[in-house]
Design a protein around this nucleic acid. Sequence first.
RNA 1: GGCCGCUUAGCUCAGUUGGCUAGAGCGUCUGAUUUACAUUCAGUAGGUCGGGGGUUCAAAUCCCUCAGCGGCCACCA
Length: 752
Amino acid sequence: MDSKFQPALCEKEIYKLWQRDVLTKKSSEKPFTILMPPPNANASLHAGHGMYTVDDIMIRWKILQGYDAKWIPGLDHAGFETQYVFEKHLVKQGKSRMDFDRQTLYQNIFKFVKNNSGLIYEQFKRLGFLAQWDRSVFTLDNHVLKTVFQTFERMIKEGYVYRSDYIVNYCTHCGTSFSELETDHMERIDPLYYIKYGPFVLATVRPETKFGDTALAVNPKDKRYKKWVGKVIEADGLLGRFKIKVIADDYVDPKFGTGVVKITPAHDPNDFLIGKKHNLEIKQIIDMNGRLNQLTGPYAGLKVKIARQKVVEDLKAKGLIEKIDEQYSHAVTVCYKCSYDLEPIIVPNWFIKVEDLKKSVIEAIKKDEIIFHPKRFKKQILQWLKVMHDWPISRQVIWGIRIPAWYNVQENPDIFVVFLDETKKQMQGKIKEILKTYSLSEVALGLQKLVAPKNASYTISQTTPGDQYLQETDTFDTWFSSGQWSLVTLKEEEYQTRYPTDLLGTLSDILPFWVSRMVMFSLYIKKIVPFKHVFLWSMVADAKGKKMAKSKGNVINPIDLVNKYGADALRAALLFGSTAGGKVNLGEDKVIGMRNFTNKIWNIGRFIQINQVQSSKCKVQSHSEKIKVKKNSEKIKKIINNLLKEYKEVEEKYQRAMEGYNFSRALGLVHRFLWHRFADYYIEKLKDAMRDGNIEVQSLLEEVYLGNLKLLHPFMPFVTDAVWQVFKGKGKSILSSKIKVQSSKLQFQVKS
RNA sequence: GGCCGCUUAGCUCAGUUGGCUAGAGCGUCUGAUUUACAUUCAGUAGGUCGGGGGUUCAAAUCCCUCAGCGGCCACCA
């Protein structure tokens, strides 16, 4: 054995051994199953992925316990996220998504993803992950598309899907709408304008939306304005004199501003609700490209921010602004991806009614059919479920699963289409007009976008239902397909034996997006929860506890650390002293500390081995010497007994910790015992006996040591298997042994 | 505003259902070592366990309260 453990020299070979012996092993033992959260197909490994280690720990621990443990991997097409990356790529080449028709763009992204995919699996292998790589599922595989289609079709039949003109958060920069969950809120200081509205003055941060106002509202209890309620007032505006109705609603806070609010149902979520309640006209004045439309007269065509400046200038000029509060601090809803202001806008959307579906989810979680570790997340997810509204599932993104709805263009002449003609020129308009000049197949070929009125008739089909049809251009929210992850990853017969799966490891930030939806889909389709336990990984932060971000320049590439210190060191650093659902500070110092631990493990083995070799030489030379040292002194017996007692305690505590998902504690226990008790204390005490060739002491130390290797193996698989092979022969893995080496065997040795 | 969590050594954090002298990693200081391992070992300093009150034979741990910090959710025209 070398004096140092050198991971770079043996990791590859050891991984090959696992691939040959462990991953291919057929077993009839009790099943244990984990579904891997599918990383983005085009992603490469970042530090956060390191926490997949937890899943690998479970898999290895279960294999050691004799389970038929399988970890099913996969890759996600990650809809919008991937398209976003791809578009940045396009920008570098001086292009934009609008230069392509839908199909071509899709194919280009597909190629892009294919070129980058698979990389992360090679990186996972560097970390030692033992997943069933040959069973990888991609969320655009045919069988996934089929399942997603069937679920959607069934939901339509059973009335869980509806289309509606609904106010959604639309990012004019990213070109798609988002669910409420995909928005960020930012505190910001903006001017608050006090605008004259006939007899009133009202405060607003968005004067440019005044063209879309269809009412003014006051609080019903507000005495100041009581006499106006129900009346129609007249006021001067930028487009001349206009009339507007005054309504009363509790929503208005009389203490804010002047107690009068302008209601713009088309461009504010709250106003939209009030509009519905009071049957107000919805007057859309901002289009999906983020520009004001023809209803705004001279402002048409201006982008929102510029229009606001212009409107304010003109209002000032007309004396319609009473004052401006420049220091008004408020929360703004922004795109979680690009941080641009989101434009609340009315877009026809596909929705899932969640009211009934979520009931069974709440019930199952309340009944602990799924157990969260740590358990405080049970409350959190229940809180999320409580406020969960209907789920808008359409995204105006190309990369994804296209919604399988087809519109008959004869029945729906008002469908609005955007397409590239033969000369790649962008054309748009209502389909009935377009068809006067173009054939439908021309439109279909160059199609970029289609907006069907909310009451359009449609047919659900995987392929075209006829030659008069155009398919919906919206795609499913990526969580609509990844939410069905548990329904597409196992083989048909495995749903009998491996479902619900045993564990789902994930980060807490996708609990509402992913975990709750997976439970929902599984309960809907399979009538059973998809997994029994959910373990929340730690968020991997830098040494100082700051979140890693490219902009901060504190991003650590885990593969660099593996190259420098070995996979075991990284794995242990991620687990050591970390808390489930918390944060783990991954500094290089910590990894070095764990690298030192791997070396310690190695050298304990080396020491035991060296002494064995020496004493076996002794044996040949002098038979009588061996007899002389055979009897152990009382002192040595006592040390041995203490060692065994302590080891047994550690082993028990370890088992308990592992069963309770306290991985960090389990690792800490063995770390402390093996290093600071076994090596620093017991070996030092028994050193002379070993050197004297005391075979009993030698074999005892070997047994305890090998036992520890098993406990440590799930966390640090490479070094433990490297030493194991020294003792048990080349090509033997710990994983081929069982963890239940009871200490009774050891006690027997001592007594004899 | 609602919910959840955190506050323990210089730093980052453990501390299982209350129970030995409150721990680890990194850092500090002193020393050892022709060594299984300098990626080592022995030792040292450093804590009124955020403040206050309560329950108990016993509280870092349970309850109340105050203060500070963080996360999530909702919301502000």
